[in-house]
Design a protein around this nucleic acid. Sequence first.
DNA 1: GAATTTCCCGCAAAAACATTCATAAACCAT
DNA 2: ATGGTTTATGAATGTTTTTGCGGGAAATTC
Lengths: 248, 248
Amino acid sequence: MLKKERQEFILREINLHNKVLTSDLCEAINVSEDTIRRDLTELAETGDIIKVHGGALSKSFHVSFQTNGVYSHDNKKLIAQKAVTLIRDGMFILTTGGTTILELAKALPQHLRATFFTGSLPAALEYIQHPNIEVIFIGDRISKNSKITVGGDAITKIKQINADICFLGINAIDTEHGLTDNDWDVVQVKKAMMQSSKKVVALTIAEKINTQQKLKIGDLDLLDIMITELNPDEKIFDAYKQKGVEIL
Amino acid sequence: MLKKERQEFILREINLHNKVLTSDLCEAINVSEDTIRRDLTELAETGDIIKVHGGALSKSFHVSFQTNGVYSHDNKKLIAQKAVTLIRDGMFILTTGGTTILELAKALPQHLRATFFTGSLPAALEYIQHPNIEVIFIGDRISKNSKITVGGDAITKIKQINADICFLGINAIDTEHGLTDNDWDVVQVKKAMMQSSKKVVALTIAEKINTQQKLKIGDLDLLDIMITELNPDEKIFDAYKQKGVEIL
DNA sequence: GAATTTCCCGCAAAAACATTCATAAACCAT
DNA sequence: ATGGTTTATGAATGTTTTTGCGGGAAATTC
């Protein structure tokens, strides 16, 4: 096998699987590891791949890392803008916390007249910046990680609410397990919020779709609308649409 | 699985779900805990995540309030330091909001173990920075200018509390009318707080001494201790001492 | 304050790597 | 063809990286 031929094979392999191991390649092509290493070095120099200890990674896969501050910030902004279109004057709105909800809070029209219920300290601080928004804070113990209220009192209060719409910043969603999260207290709160609202909207960056966490919040049939940064026609949503979730 | 690959997986997991446990990761990736720990250390060094005992956290979503520029800032810091001396481990503490209370929050010893009740959004955000402080937020409608909860629900909740000590940031005090303020809702809350606490402490800059506002919170006999930036021996305090108020 | 969990440090084994050298194949001009 | 040159490969050797483990320190929990 010619050198050029071999390198093309390696490239194809990388683009196909996003990674290769030196050991795999040397077995597949039947040359010494040193030869493979030399090939990888050359390919890395011309810039098509990223050489790492043990093999190499595809460059396209490696992209997309950390901008500034909030992860996937632009996407969250886009999501927030879509979510805002669901809000009308006079509505009673229930929201969780999380960075995506925070973006929603920032994206609200300045003169929106509505009532917001929340247990999130950062979100509440954003809401009160708007002159015509009434903010009702749901009290109880504050969870340090998520900066939202959790506990029985909070849940009792939430159950007394009958909101028009509920915006959930969610942590993981898939068609099999539905909405899942990793903090027991937070799960209880989200559960209650879903029950206390006529319409439930989940906000999430697409990356979280088809992932799952340890604790279940609820099945997909409790969810009315899901908003991501993607186009609603993407085929990743097909399974969700089939389960009756509207995609925005 | 390659090291680089693994670290990208970890980073993704953190950005998606805001936190990871070392134990979860080592199970998911099937490597030893030490390896995960080493990865987390490296990622933390390059600044992408925050390493904590047991796992790691996302870097976004960590805010603190800027207090530079607050009127009479140094004096308020001094007042806060005096107030801290009244606090003991295990106490149940009730606080209002306001910039002086915010200074108190910042001046708390890092490892104080106590339970704080408050209806102030900024104060609550400070309290939760402390690992051993439990924060109970008193919910209800949020007043926009004072950023604290007001309303009947809040007052009902406050009345159910029996705190060891209550710190009031006050607006005006004189010997004739006692404690006064200018916002009806806030007055109701402060009244309730004074009644729900064994000991009541008022924090104020000396400038507000011997001034009055339109609405009465309560007489001086409800007040146990007053803290200002001045020396307690100043003669301005004589009249207050006579009425049974201790000066610190 | 005792028990449990998590962390940190140093060690050792294994894997991966770089460097050098020798061989062999390919190329090329005569 | 042939000798010289370049290029590619594999092997030998020593170095670096990575990883898991043991034991003791530190933190956390009850």
